[in-house]
């Protein structure tokens, strides 16, 4: 059993990050290749200034009009996305493991704080799920795939939470935690999670069309 754990927490982590990072790079390369082959003209509209202007405007909480109109959703969404990165990166247990492997470490969240933040991530996901079930215009667009995405993100956090508190089935829970986390990372380049890198591109393009051609704001 330890050999299996050694595998999923050792080589498999390498494989995961390799697929995750190379996958994202490949995704960008393929998009750019496709742009060059089929829509190269978009470069004559894209400017760095207007791209960044739009991305920046949409990154400021409650600045775009849409965010003021749906403050609850955006509020939850901002916090959720922030914590999605923050909690795993600054979790003591993760840093300890990285330190054991590379002898590199960085500032860590207090476990009790990380615990609360994990609950917040969970609540965010519950909010997204309920919204999908209750709000008609969202329900209309929702299929089981959308719930699956929520589940994929939820699993590493739920299993991590249960494992940390050692509620039950400790060893299987940690194994589930590691594997579900790896699945999530591996899926990012190949699923709708790729909005992580594609959304800034679409935003940049729309920002450029609005800023450079239309001389208007797009927020």
């Amino acid at each position: 059993m330890n050999a299996f754990i050694d595998f999923i927490m050792g080589p498999m982590v390498w494989i995961t990050f390799l697929i995750f990072i190379l996958g994202l790079i490949l995704k960008i390369v393929l998009i750019l290749k496709d742009v060059n082959a089929r829509e190269p003209y978009i470069y004559s509209y894209m400017t760095l200034k207007h791209s960044l202007r739009s991305i920046a405007a949409w990154s400021i909480p409650f600045f775009p009009k849409s965010t003021k109109q749906s403050p609850v959703f955006y509020g939850v969404s901002y916090i959720f996305h922030l914590l999605l990165f923050l909690v795993p990166i600054f979790l003591t247990a993760h840093i300890v493991l990285v330190n054991e492997a590379f002898q590199v470490s960085w500032i860590a969240l207090d476990d009790s704080i990380a615990d609360i933040l994990t609950i917040m991530v969970g609540l965010g996901l519950v909010f997204f799920m309920i919204r999908r079930m209750m709000v008609p215009e969202v329900k209309y667009l929702t299929s089981c795939k959308d719930y699956l995405l929520i589940l994929i993100v939820a699993l590493p956090f739920i299993t991590g939470f249960i494992a940390y508190h050692q509620f039950f089935l400790y060893r299987p829970m940690v194994i589930a935690h590691v594997i579900s986390g790896e699945i999530m990372l591996i899926l990012i380049p190949f699923s709708k999670f790729s909005h992580m890198i594609v959304a800034p591109l679409t935003r940049a393009y729309m920002g450029s069309e609005f800023g450079n051609v239309r001389h208007a704001k797009d927020w």
Binding site: D34, V35, E39, E137, V138, K192, T202
Partner: peptide, 30 residues
């Protein structure tokens, strides 16, 4: 179509926020 079309279709997270923008949606009782 090209990569833009693909990105638009693949990246949409089905969040429904666009609804608020549309005259048709608002005029037809959401």
């Amino acid at each position: 179509t090209g990569p833009r079309f693909k990105a638009y279709v693949e990246t949409c997270m089905h969040c429904g926020l666009c609804a608020e923008a549309c005259l048709y949606f608002l005029s037809n009782d959401r």
